[in-house]
Nucleic acid binder design. Structure first.
Lengths: 228, 228
DNA sequence: CGATGACTTGAGCACAGTCAAGTGCAGTGG
DNA sequence: CCACTGCACTTGACTGTGCTCAAGTCATCG
């Protein structure tokens, strides 16, 4: 299945990803022809630290987590890739090894473009290059905010923000937590025990309601935003 | 002085900055003609949050700190701009307002290129665009590491890493701290008091020597790297 | 020489991490 | 159909890191 030009998933990828939007029809075709696609089952690794980072990875369908292992062995989640998201910061600028892991959280289709192909493409399509710079810029702003929030806010506040973001992303006030508590914990730089306690605390303050173990309803969004 | 093409500082900027290296001679001239330069005294703000972010900022000579103010009012340092560094993640990809501040830490010369000029330039010079993507990629990797380290390591460990990085950057085992303790504190997400205590602690363990208030000598680099 | 700001040191406290025991649920096999 | 295993999660008790507040020292500069 992989490496077939113009197959269904490859076209999906090209259509899905913001950096490829606003490209000429011709460019779009070229991109599709360079894309290879692959399927991963829940729990499988899409790539691992130490792999040579030689491809841009696009999630065509599914969900994956990207994380690093700190020197002390602790896991730190960097981001969740949803359908349409892509990853390849490191992949595209050097021959260096990857420093992070990506793991499928459900059955997931991804597309990949080789670094060398992509760099060639950028040189011939200024549109694409500009889109790429813009996408990276947004990612940098988002990372800076994550860093700032992690360093200056309490866990409870970060958890509240996380719930608001998740709710906004799904456009629902009531939703299933898309991650295991363990994963939420590493995302927020804390432990599952603390997540559990803080969720109870937020529920006690009537800011959220715990419908079930994984089903959360937001009762007071403004209140959540003001958690210190 | 500002807005004069081909002036001395403008050429400095173009030569200094990695993203402009490996450009054709012609492109280099074009860049230089688009650059405006400005001088800031120690303590002056180069830009502030809320300003429209419409220019790429390059440090031609001097040093500046870039920081954000968290919602709870705490200051978080994002990075130090040294001679040759540039800043403009947000500046270059949208018309959005800035979310961060940049303040000169000494007398500092900066150059600026307007967002619109720069985007035009990228479309005509694929080389530049590729350089830009690569530079952003490196910044993203660095930010991800900063996030991971902040979330998973103790202050003492982060301080140790900071000292090692600073030492490596200056290529000296003995060096003046380039920042006030207050600034180091916000950089590492802590307080001046804690910095003071942890430095004493590292000195007691004979990993460093406090020659004076601001002069540090690294005694045991391997030991520092292993601080938990 | 006094004033200002940077830094240090100390005491008390709170947030959140660790460790440990227990609960609930899903999947497996008898 | 129920016991058993494994895993995610919860809850409790304890501890420690690092923050806050406050007082004191030191250095620089007018």
């Amino acid at each position: 299945m992989a490496h077939l030009a113009h197959n269904h998933t490859a076209e999906d990828c090209v259509e899905l990803v913001t950096i490829f939007q606003s490209l000429s029809k011709e460019d779009t075709k070229t991109v599709a022809s360079l894309v290879s696609d692959k399927h991963y089952q829940s729990g499988e690794y899409i790539y691992q630290a130490g792999n040579s980072a030689d491809a841009l990875t696009i999630v065509a369908h599914g969900q994956a987590k990207v994380f690093q292992i700190a020197t002390n062995g602790k896991e730190q989640m960097l981001r969740i890739l949803q359908t349409g998201d892509f990853d390849g910061e490191a992949a595209l600028f050097s021959n260096k090894d990857r420093t992070s892991f990506a793991q499928a959280l459900m059955d997931t289709d991804v597309c990949q473009i080789k670094r060398s192909d992509f760099q060639k493409l950028m040189k011939t399509s200024p549109e694409l290059a500009v889109n790429m710079v813009n996408a990276f810029g947004q990612r940098i702003v988002q990372l800076e905010q994550q860093t700032t929030e992690a360093a200056t806010s309490s866990i409870e506040s970060r958890l509240a923000s996380y719930l608001l973001e998740t709710s906004a992303g799904l456009k629902k006030e009531q939703f299933e937590l898309p991650l295991k508590k363990k994963d939420i914990a590493t995302y927020l730089g804390t432990t599952p025990e603390t997540i559990s306690r803080k969720l109870s605390s937020l529920a006690k303050d009537e800011l959220i309601e715990k419908k079930s173990n994984t089903l959360i309803k937001i009762l007071d969004a403004d209140g959540l935003a003001m958690v210190e």
